[in-house]
Every structure is written in structure tokens, then in C-alpha cells.
Computed example of a mutant assay.
Amino acid sequence: MTSIVNAIRALFIGQPVGTDVWVALAWCVGILVVAYAFAMRTYHRKIS
């Protein structure tokens, strides 16, 4: 999570971001995949 905050902070300030952007994007995609899987599992339990 720190890499996400560091990347956003660097983008707003206008400093070079480096590899923090790729790490932040990987974290966001990972969180999205886990949340999607959890939501779909919960949804399928509710409609069954």
C-alpha cells in the first residue's frame, strides 16, 4: 500500500516516480482481482 501512496504523492508533486508506478498498479490489480473473486463468491451464494 505504501507504494501506491508514494506513486500518487510523486505524481502530484511532479517528481520522478520510477518503478513505484508499476508496483502501485500491480497492487491495485491484485486488490481488484481479490475483491472481484470475493464479490462473485458472495453473489453466487446469495442467489443459490
Rank of each mutant, 00 (worst) to 15 (best):
V23D: 00
A39S: 09
V29R: 03
G18R: 00
Q15G: 04
V17I: 15
V33G: 03
A35N: 04
A24E: 03
Y36H: 05
V5M: 11
S48N: 10
W22L: 12
A7F: 00
V21L: 15
W22M: 08
A35H: 01
I8D: 02
P16E: 09
D20L: 11
N6F: 06
R45M: 09
A37L: 13
M1T: 13
A24S: 06
F38Y: 12
G14W: 00
Y36C: 10
A37F: 11
I4R: 15
I13W: 02
G18C: 02
L11M: 11
V34W: 03
I13L: 08
I4K: 13
A7I: 00
V29W: 01
A39N: 04
A37N: 06
W27D: 07
Y36E: 09
M1G: 14
G14F: 00
A7E: 03
T2W: 08
D20Y: 09
W22Y: 12
L32W: 07
L25F: 11
S3R: 11
H44E: 11
I31G: 07
I47Q: 11
V34S: 04
V29G: 06
V33M: 04
I4W: 08
L11Y: 06
R41Y: 12
I8S: 00
G30Y: 02
V5W: 10
S3T: 15
L25A: 10
L25R: 05
I47T: 15
A35T: 12
I4S: 10
S48W: 07
A24P: 04
P16G: 05
R41A: 14
V29H: 00
V23S: 03
L32C: 07
W22I: 14
P16T: 07
L25H: 00
W27Q: 10
V34E: 02
V23I: 15
V29P: 00
V29I: 15
R9D: 13
I31K: 00
D20R: 09
G30S: 04
C28G: 08
D20W: 05
V21A: 14
A39P: 02
R45I: 10
P16C: 02
A24W: 02
V5R: 12
L11C: 03
V34G: 00
D20V: 01
G30D: 01
M1V: 11
I8C: 02
V34Y: 04
A26G: 11
V17Y: 01
A10V: 03
A10R: 06
M1Y: 09
V34A: 12
S3E: 15
F38Q: 08
I47P: 02
V5K: 12
K46M: 13
